[in-house]
Design a protein around this nucleic acid. Structure first.
Lengths: 207, 207
DNA sequence: CTGAAAGTTGAACCGAGTTTCAACTTGGAA
DNA sequence: TTCCAAGTTGAAACTCGGTTCAACTTTCAG
């Protein structure tokens, strides 16, 4: 899991803990991957630095060579997951189709990501308590992006306005819960089926 | 806050810790109210039994007269919050209108509840990590109830079917995130405005 | 080959918070 | 008034896990 969770460099705060050699970079990467897996499986509070270092195959003290604290590591991970989702969804938005179809494609891409990275829910959800600012930032930006896309569609006459912040949060909430139900919990149901039903809902409503 | 959080009796597990006198019931109630407030403000892990008993105005040891552990108390609270939401939404569902209008009324009632009980989000969200079974039960039932209501509407020809589990989770996700944004975070915006926009979305879609 | 910088190690320190428990208080029934 | 079950108390035992640090190893430039 999560072989690509690690960015080239990681923000570590004032005291520079960045690795200076290739060897160091590998160790830091092992710690980040181990942490993503561990937090995903057990949650922040159940994961100990001991268990993370054990999973990474390094000694306890090594952790503090690269991270100021368990907290700082978690924040770096939240930021990274948030960026990964964005990067995964971005390309499908370039595909042809009207604004609503593109939201459907975005949902499909997100569901796929959730199936591959089930740890994302535990990490981002738990950020509400462990790193509230990163958590807030993530949802604020995601909703904002949806609103912007819908407004572009509105300008093109593809969606019926006026588009409001409410629409952004409504669609985001829908996507998040569908990701939870059909990405993380139920791994069997075909994702395009789910995305199609949801897309029909936001296109035509239920009436 | 949370004067009505306390059920008449609380499940406490095998060893019977139920109070036997009026005095005991009052103390247990004080502990439950204090815990709801404390968990709502600081979250489960930041709330200590010391802080809860201090807020309730009783000694540390008294806590264990009524609860086997901090964990058991939290579970009781989650169950209670879940029931409170249900009880708050139920009455407005009896009002006249088609199935979709009733979903709008339900959302309105839920948003109102969220404004009055901001602690509900922290408590139910954190249950994902502290009491996963209660958390699962809560969302499973909520989605199920939405699906049932929509299917009734479908039978009456008020909504366009076929209604799927996807619809239940989609609407629930929408409601939850709107409650977060406009119930807990933004307390200014008129709730019926929010509910109306969301209801128009699920009634007619965006196209 | 050599020295120094980078990296690694894990026992020990430390604070925090849950839970226990034996002594003490309260309130009401007989 | 007496007695006892129910309730209360808070110091202390206990557990747990984050963080520190001084000794040790590896790597590599000169």
């Amino acid at each position: 899991m999560a072989g690509s969770v690690v960015p080239a460099t990681v923000a570590v705060g004032p005291a520079d803990k960045s690795p200076r050699t290739e060897r160091g970079r590998k160790t830091q990467r092992a710690l980040l991957d181990a942490a993503a897996a561990e937090f995903g499986e057990r949650g922040f509070h159940e994961s100990s630095v001991v268990s993370i270092t054990a999973r990474a195959g390094v000694a306890l003290g090594t952790f503090y060579t690269y991270f100021e604290s368990k907290d700082v590591l978690f924040r770096a991970l939240v930021r990274d997951m948030s960026d990964q989702v964005r990067d995964r969804v971005a390309p499908v938005l370039a595909e042809p189709g009207d604004a609503i179809a593109r939201e459907g494609a975005a949902l499909g891409a997100f569901l796929g990501f959730a199936r591959e990275h089930k740890e994302i829910y535990r990490i981002i959800d738990e950020a509400e308590f462990v790193a509230p600012d990163e958590w807030h930032r993530h949802y604020e930006r995601t909703a904002q992006r949806i609103v912007e896309r819908l407004r572009e569609g509105e300008a093109r006459g593809e969606v019926f306005g006026p588009i409001d912040e409410v629409h952004g949060w409504a669609l985001m909430g829908m996507n998040v819960f569908l990701g939870l139900r059909f990405g993380v919990q139920d791994c069997e149901r075909p994702l395009n089926e789910v995305a199609d039903i949801a897309n029909a809902l936001i296109r035509n409503g239920l009436a």
